[in-house]
Design a protein around this nucleic acid. Sequence first.
DNA 1: AAAGTCTTCAACCGCCGGCGA
DNA 2: CTCGCCGGCGGTTGAAGACTT
Length: 314
Amino acid sequence: MGRTPCCDKNGLKKGPWTPEEDQKLIDYIQTHGYGNWRTLPKNAGLQRCGKSCRLRWTNYLRPDIKRGRFSFEEEEAIIQLHSVLGNKWSAIAARLPGRTDNEIKNYWNTNIRKRLLRMGIDPVTHSPRLDLLDLSSILGCCSFYNQSQMNMSTRLLGGGGGQPLVNPEILRLATSIMSSPQRENQNPDFLFHENQYQQPPLMQNTNVAEPVMNNNPNVIIDQFPFNGCFTDWQNNANAVLPYLTEDNYVPVPSNCYGGGNGEPSFRTPSSSSPTPLNSNNSTYINSSSTEDESYSSDILKFEIPDFLDVNEFM
DNA sequence: AAAGTCTTCAACCGCCGGCGA
DNA sequence: CTCGCCGGCGGTTGAAGACTT
């Protein structure tokens, strides 16, 4: 289907918009609305192509655009949404009122993506990348989340009376993963292909952990052992090792690097019984850790803000 | 103070899907 | 069914400002 380029080569302006051009576009749209972007620039007296006008309007001039820095809540929402939707910037933007896909995309690429990388998390799969991981980065990530009042450095290292969040077994896992023959038994279905969140398969040994049955379509089933069960994987031949890709991914749910209050939350294994996941006001995925109550309940709880209609993702 | 490097983000490009003729 | 138009999307670019040396 040969289609003519929307931007005529001759005579149409490109590059940054001037205030005069902005005003022309605003005036025109306020008077006539926006319908046919192809004819709009001509009617509005602009030497621009329709595409450029549409972009300028939707990304910059639209009156409902919220400008300025992203709030922590927005940032958190972007990460969560990205873990489900992938690079569907428009879909993410649709759930963040006042933000454009372009803005979110830019913010992701310039801020969040880099931070995740520094934390050793692959920004594409939202999985820890062992080849990226180093402890200094993990500690560094605390600054990413430091808008919470918690001193995560202390927590990660086990200070303040709590258990360390960076389980020494993570380090052992790294070693075992690299040498595990089960690397060959990778289940590609669990990878976040095509931006679709997929449930991890059942662990064969229920003592280890198993994903909670999804009784509530509003809930992203997100339970997957990440901390505390590595020994079981190592010791139990029947236990299914977490998936590894060629690139040494260990896919973990998004909440492993951000609890409802923004801390990285490496969680304990959940109880094996299906947990009703309901809340009137918000949806929690609650890992009812009975084995180690010293873990903060906040860390084991992931809240999906109401304005994120998870239903639409499914 | 100047030069070099890095970061940010507005804008562009090319592709795709929907729709009507 | 094919074709062409249009809107929309995601990836990429490059200018400008910020920061570092």
